[in-house]
Design a protein around this nucleic acid. Structure first.
Length: 276
DNA sequence: ATAAGGCCCTGACCGC
DNA sequence: TGCGGTCAGGGCCTTA
């Protein structure tokens, strides 16, 4: 379940490997992975294009091309992007193979078929509705607070809303709320400016640490269905998590057993003592 | 306008 | 060992 730290790790891997390369072949093993335009137009337009840079906005990877076109990718729950040589083995979750002019391949794996790719002239078509980037200078505690007013939803749900804030998902929302000592069911509109300041610092802190650890991989023995970087390596951030998937375990701060409750259908972990 | 629930998918996991 | 049921969840869609 790649969120901002995982997508950023992949972005850095891809930036080193892909910048300046050219796509020479596009093989769609499951054409449904292409969301726009048609699979045929996607292939025809992408072949021959040179990669100018690899960027990220929220959980979207953006491959900017010399023509000005943009290849956007979203991994959703179970997608991964792997840099492989053409001789390495394929498997049944492979949805697309983008072959480069140095002979290597960018392979899009996705067991659950939630992920997708878009080829668009303007990247704003993909990103225009997203909320602020957590590390953008324009994202201040005041901006965060202003986006919470008049919203009656639980703060946890709003942190996961990409239109409110880009890049944070289920894991890092729980982690940030724990770090900021805010109960996940608190209504967003009741969060004070002082709490928003704590939350702002916590969001950046947990994301920064996760990026430093190259993301969170839960079942490291499973080669499918779990986050991997572009070289197939697991992230090391699991041990740094405060609450996620640790229901019943003692809070590292106070020893109280951590709880798990559903919020908007998503598993939510928190410390009932630290987070009031 | 906001809020809530269903849906897409399929591997992993659990109880029998 | 096998099998059916349930869970996981990002983002989009429909409904209230």
């Amino acid at each position: 379940m790649p969120e901002l730290p995982e997508v950023e790790t992949i972005r850095r891997d891809l930036a080193r490997a892909l910048t300046g390369r050219r796509f020479v072949d596009v093989d769609l093993l499951w054409p449904g992975v292409v969301r726009h335009p048609s699979p045929e137009d996607f292939q025809r337009c992408l072949v021959g294009q040179r990669i100018r840079e690899v960027a990220r906005r929220g959980k979207y990877l953006l491959i900017r091309l010399d023509s000005g076109d943009n290849l956007a990718m979203h991994l959703k729950m179970s997608g991964s992007l792997l840099l492989r040589s053409p001789s390495s083995a394929l498997d049944s979750y492979l949805r697309a193979v983008l072959t480069l002019d140095d002979g290597n391949q960018l392979r899009f794996y996705d067991p659950r078929k939630f992920g997708g790719m878009w080829l668009v002239a303007e990247e704003e078509a993909i990103t225009c509705k997203l909320g602020p980037e957590p590390f953008d200078a324009a994202f201040t505690p005041e901006v965060l607070h202003s986006r919470l007013v008049r919203r009656a939803v639980p703060i946890k749900a709003l942190l996961c809303d990409q239109f409110c804030l880009a890049g944070v998902g289920n894991i890092y929302a729980d982690e940030a709320l724990c770090d900021a000592r805010i109960h996940p069911l608190r209504k967003a509109k009741d969060i004070t400016l002082e709490e928003a300041e704590r939350l702002h610092a916590a969001i950046r802190s947990v994301l920064e640490r996760a990026i430093g650890n190259r993301g969170t991989t839960f079942r490291k023995e499973s080669l499918t269905n779990q986050y991997r970087d572009a070289y197939g390596e697991a992230g090391r951030n699991e041990d740094a998590l405060l609450v996620t998937r640790r229901a019943g375990a003692p809070c590292s701060c106070c020893g109280t057993p951590l709880q798990r409750i559903p919020i908007r259908g998503r598993g939510t972990y928190f410390c009932p003592d630290c987070q009031r």
